[in-house]
Design a protein around this nucleic acid. Structure first.
Lengths: 151, 151
DNA sequence: GTTATTAATTGAATATTGTTCAATAAGGTC
DNA sequence: GACCTTATTGAACAATATTCAATTAATAAC
């Protein structure tokens, strides 16, 4: 066998998708050429960043979801963006934000299991100047990427 | 004019997209029929939930991003999922998780501005049995939906 | 290990969908 | 109003996806 699925999932995760003009046209009762024009405009203006697949993350070994509230070491405190960008490079990281309040950074992490999660946190504390991490582990993912998770 | 963009954005936010088999085929050097088969299988198995657009949220009036850490009133404490599902219905809500730790629910919210955010929080506290909300406001969105935000 | 059964791969034909292009209309500017 | 830019649209064309049937690979049964 070829086991194409993993490669497919990898590509569909961040692109390799496109809007369905025909279906949009039927729904909005507009000619496809009009929608074509409007879609291209949105792309040109940078309003649409990309088209991608949304997964049932449990089924692609990313079922363990954690929010990390991060404090930086004094030496890194002035540059939360730099640290954020480094963290963002990790493919298990769904989102990174520099935030107000008691913590500097919030990370949404998707791992296979608690072991992978623990490996990430250990490595993160070592590599980026992190002084403290509070982990909020998801017990139930109700909505993700604007999509309601059924079951 | 018709001002189709808002309708288009609404539909592309949660679907109306499809994988590009041809492009995938060229990249993976596989016949489209093989990929077709594999994609359909992933869909059938529920691995892929949907295909959607990712936006530059500032450009669609959802630039104000906040994480809400929520505590429930004693009367609702036993049913965080029910409350979560109600919160999830709001289209400004990107994600909802029931979590471990000092809070019961974490919500990722995307609003136009702080006024819209405040309106959401006021309404949420009234409607769902919420006793306390801590808001972590995003100062800089570095990565979103697995996509690195440039600039 | 051979046979039966199911799952996966593929090419060729077909159907569907998207793209280009040129005409027209609408909106804005002076 | 004259001009220029932006938006809408249909018809012809190009590209892409889908179906289907044949073949191969994997799995199960005996």
């Amino acid at each position: 066998m070829k086991d194409i699925a993993p490669k497919l999932i990898g590509l569909l995760k961040g692109g390799y998708c496109t809007p369905q003009l025909g279906r949009l046209g039927r729904t909005l009762r507009e000619p496809v050429t009009t929608l074509q024009y409007n879609v291209k405009k949105l792309e040109r203006e940078g309003v649409v960043h990309s088209y991608k697949a949304v997964f049932d993350y449990k089924k692609i070994n990313e079922g363990h979801c954690t929010y990390l509230l991060i404090n930086l070491e004094p030496s890194k405190y002035g540059e939360p963006e730099e640290v954020s960008q480094k963290i963002a490079k990790n493919p298990s990281v769904e989102s990174v934000d520099v935030i107000t309040g008691d913590y500097e950074i919030i990370v949404k992490l998707r791992c296979k299991d608690i072991d992978e999660y623990y490996a990430f946190v250990k490595q993160a504390i070592k590599q980026y100047g992190i002084s403290k991490v509070i982990s909020l582990t998801s017990l139930k993912q109700v909505k993700t990427e604007f999509v309601n998770c059924d079951n």
